[in-house]
Design a protein around this nucleic acid. Structure first.
Lengths: 248, 248
DNA sequence: ACCATTGAGAGAGCACCGCTCTCTCAATAC
DNA sequence: GTATTGAGAGAGCGGTGCTCTCTCAATGGT
């Protein structure tokens, strides 16, 4: 239950060979994880990982079918790690405080991305050329989203009704599959609203992580805080909405 | 005035050698452009480009200092191409119709990205590991932004005053450098508002281009249209804002 | 017109990459 | 005790970016 790809129950009854295999695989993954953290997905070298583990490159193929298979494991881990952090952060908030639950989750997403930029790039950056994410990653990928949409669901259940414009109603049709699969208890337009929040948060996070703000935004944290603030207002969670006219 | 890196005035007085050099460089870039379009930035191979031009790999170094230098040229071209398209699209709209000018620009950004996904990834995707964009790219990179902020400037000049919350005023400080450099005629909070629109549009575009919507959003165009609609309302350009309570 | 210089391109080579195939040899199963 | 399995090594293939040396024609100066 500890590592993603530990084959069986990790029981005590294991032959020395199985045990050694386990140990080697764990070490390979650990080194791979560190390399990913240091050089990023594109520069991740199977040979370099093997070298550091005292193995020759061909030996790695006893453990991973290909470089892509290794990447898949790292992707799974990244999704799950982000999910775990988001879940943990959200759990600390009073269940009734919907705005704070949303805000804390969003803040944790950004914090995780900044602490793990290469992992973030791996799962939310431009796709690796030859690589297509296998279906196995879907549940892990959905994990963070589940937290956010869980909050939206609770909000809807407790009577929160965000503003729905005709254009939003139109956009609702685009997310019907998502709504069916993940949050059938919320009407489509509200799901669309949530997807939009999702998109916006990641827009801000990826711009910051990928350096698009470099000579442009001095303190992305402030901007992000404002974005969250606006999302809260838009979703009907209550947030700063009073105007002062916009004069400098 | 035609190609980005044509050294001189492209005048008629050129020795055969200079002419041949020009021609070869143009051909290299043309092939590189096509390869970029086909395989993406990560898989762009200097050797493959040389091969197709009937050259050996080392000969390419007479024209480009390194693969990164070639990438830089392609980045410049991508920024400029996006800028040209945005400018052209915006110019077709009645100057007084601020909302339509903004909407058309935003639509054109998405259209360009969908038509040139690899170019989009090159300039807005996860950064290439060893590569750091040189300062030369800044003006070209600013080009699209200039269109959007030009509209914001015109709007502000004609009396449009978007809603400014305290949190937005706070966020304004984060963009003071950008405001000084590019749009000193607009107050900081409004600039921050514009940056946010910028971030959101790119959030939606990159999610669509990078495939994050694959099993999630059926028609990203509808969602994008709604996002634009919301931006218009938020920026004070007039847009759908009437509510119907959000019941399904 | 001749000669020295310049520069485009070829070629070999270096270190790296992912991946495949064969071989060895110890741990395992019978 | 023997046959089988499987982890790892090693060589090798074709690919990459990049460097260095060499050739040789176009060029510029006298």
């Amino acid at each position: 239950m500890e590592s993603v790809s530990t084959p069986e129950v990790a029981a005590g009854a294991m032959t020395p060979r199985q045990l050694a295999r386990e140990r080697t695989k764990r070490e390979l993954l650990s080194v791979a994880r560190r390399h990913l953290r240091e050089v990023g997905p594109a520069a991740l070298s199977l040979r370099a990982i093997a070298r550091e583990c005292g193995l020759v490159s061909s030996a790695v193929y006893r453990y991973f079918e290909s470089r892509d298979a290794l990447l898949t494991v790292l992707i799974l881990e990244a999704y799950d790690d982000l999910g775990v952090h988001a879940e943990a952060a959200e759990r600390l908030v009073d269940r009734g405080d919907l705005g704070q639950r949303f805000a804390r989750t969003a803040q944790e997403m950004r914090a995780w991305a900044l602490k793990n930029p290469h992992q973030y790039a791996l799962i939310y950056g431009s796709p690796v050329p030859g690589y297509a994410a296998p279906q196995i990653t879907v549940p892990s990928a959905a994990r963070v989203g589940t937290v956010l949409f869980g909050i939206l669901g609770d909000a809807y259940a407790s009577g929160v009704r965000p503003l729905v414009t005709p254009a939003l109603r139109e956009a609702g049709g685009a997310v019907s599959q998502l709504q069916r699969d993940y949050c059938p208890e919320i009407p489509e337009p509200v799901v669309a609203l949530g997807v939009e929040s999702w998109v916006r948060l990641h827009g801000a996070i990826s711009f910051e992580v990928f350096g698009q703000f470099n000579q442009m935004v001095a303190s992305p944290g402030d901007l992000y805080a404002f974005i969250i603030d606006e999302e809260l207002a838009r979703l009907g969670f209550g947030g700063g909405a009073e105007s002062d006219g916009g004069t400098p």
